[in-house]
């Protein structure tokens, strides 16, 4: 089989760059990451791409393929017949080199989220129905594609004001843990800036783990913020209930 694929890959660094074309032979079942590896081994040994598991578990190989935010290891070359495959780095984060971006901001924010604070000591008695919700969020592989596509971070450069969908999901998983006692509502409304999310759902669309980020994570958090700040009546009822 002499079938040939054309890739146009961004080559450059902090100072800028441009797309460069490569032609490589197709192999059945090939994913875009395989194609990039072929280029590395045969044409451009210094082509920078971040990857680890090549099994969609680690979330390292996030990029933009023909305009869509995707994992390189999960995107098959034969999804693009008769078209050039354009591969670019994530737009929202600064380029280090080629397809590798500086995602350190995300780790800074992760560090600022108050950790799990259980009231009791393990072993816990928790039922599956109690944890189903948070297990969905814990599927997150931290590929940061949601952070990349979120227009607040991407187009408004509002990284100081809003922490992005990944951090919302992390906080949702903690707030909804049946045994957690920490309160992150003030943080959510304050410096984490949940109000900046206008629920346009692109994070949910790009999530390779299929996490329903907006409906199951961010909106319930917004409702929790509303409980505390926009619903004095409900607050009173809840107080009496306790």
């Amino acid at each position: 089989m002499a079938e040939e694929i054309t890739l146009s890959v961004f080559r450059g660094d902090r100072s800028g760059g441009r797309e460069q074309e490569y032609k490589i032979p197709a192999v059945p079942g090939m994913v875009v990451l395989d194609a990039l590896h072929y280029i590395q081994a045969h044409q451009a040994p210094d082509l920078a791409v971040r990857w680890n598991c090549k099994a969609a578990h680690c979330g390292s190989c996030s990029a933009e393929i023909n305009g869509s935010a995707k994992l390189l290891c999960k995107t098959r070359v034969d999804d693009y017949t008769d078209e050039v495959i354009h591969v670019r780095p994530m737009h929202t984060f600064p380029v280090i080199k080629d397809l590798v971006t500086d995602v350190s901001w995300n780790y800074e924010k992760l560090r600022q989220i108050p950790a799990f604070q259980p009231a009791i000591k393990a072993p816990f008695t928790l039922h599956q129905r109690d944890v189903d919700r948070i297990q969905e969020f814990r599927k997150c592989i931290e590929c940061f594609l949601c952070q990349n596509i979120c227009h607040v971070l991407r187009d408004h450069s509002a990284k100081d004001a809003y922490w992005g969908p990944r951090m919302m999901i992390r906080m949702a998983e903690l707030q909804m843990h049946p045994l957690d006692t920490a309160d992150r509502i003030d943080l959510l409304k304050g410096s984490a800036g949940i109000g900046y999310c206008n629920i346009t759902k692109c994070c949910t669309v790009v999530c390779p783990q299929g996490i329903n980020i907006t409906d199951n994570g961010i909106i319930p958090l917004k409702e929790r913020v509303a409980d505390k700040y926009f619903d004095p009546l409900g607050g009173l009822v809840r107080k009496m209930h306790k």
């Binding site: 393990a122 072993p123 816990f124 008695t125 928790l126 039922h127 599956q128 109690d130 944890v131 948070i134």
Partner: peptide, 19 residues
Amino acid sequence: VLELEQWGAVFDRTPEGRI
């Protein structure tokens, strides 16, 4: 393993609510 649960790991549960 129990220590992980203490730190926030969320394992699948038995009908009795254990790991």
